[in-house]
Design a protein around this nucleic acid. Sequence first.
DNA 1: ATAGAGCCCGCATGAGCATG
DNA 2: CATGCTCATGCGGGCTCTAT
Length: 249
Amino acid sequence: MSDNAITKEEVFEMEHDQELGNKHYSRCSSAGSTHTPNSSAHNSDDDDDSGDAGRGKPDVLSYKERRREAHTQAEQKRRDAIKKGYDSLQELVPRCQPNDSSGYKLSKALILQKSIEYIVYLNQQKMKQEEESSALQKEVTALRIIQNGYENMLQHQQANPGPEEERLTDEAKFQVFQAIMQEMFDTFQHIPMDNFKQLTGGVIPWLEEHCKPHILRNILSRTLQQMSQEVLDKQQQQAMDQETTEGFS
DNA sequence: ATAGAGCCCGCATGAGCATG
DNA sequence: CATGCTCATGCGGGCTCTAT
């Protein structure tokens, strides 16, 4: 396997010695002026492993050279992966996307910074939604408790209707229903209804404002008081009429 | 218009660590 | 121990901005 590698390297070296090799070393010559080997430098430097096979054969790459070649390719692969990651980030993060017109590309530092800002923003949104969800869940629980209470009251009422003489007549129930509906209608007709949007936008606030249990209870209480007063008045009137009749007789 | 400064990016390489 | 991977470093090149 190492033989194959060496052969490949040899071929590579022979084919690209001029163009790539010169470019390679010209780049490194400045960068690696302190450390980059040229041929003379590492012939004396790393002849420990290549020396046996390649001593006197300049075509055969030394171990150090082979390792450097492999490393260069690996490093290129790594840089590609990093670049791909930055490109993906720029595609994923809305604030990182370049303008369509200019097509300018953000720097890597900016991509990182914007990505961090976006993640923070998403975390805040998540927390906010969790709080809203929690509040709504509590509201649902409370409404279910109220619903159960009313259902229990209804069942109890149906199971124990009470003495015959204490039950409300259908006439009385109708009066109560009529009074409640009349009062609700008086407020409901103030909802703007020029279009469907206005209607739907007005119904919810109306429900919240005028259909609260204590308001309905007040209406009920007031209506029952009125009915009670009317019965009393009626009874008094009947008594007076009776007295008058008896007086005449 | 142009030279120079500053910034960013890609590249090659060495060093150090992990792994089979 | 060979190999792969990551990180740091130094350098060249391209681009933009600014002072002259």
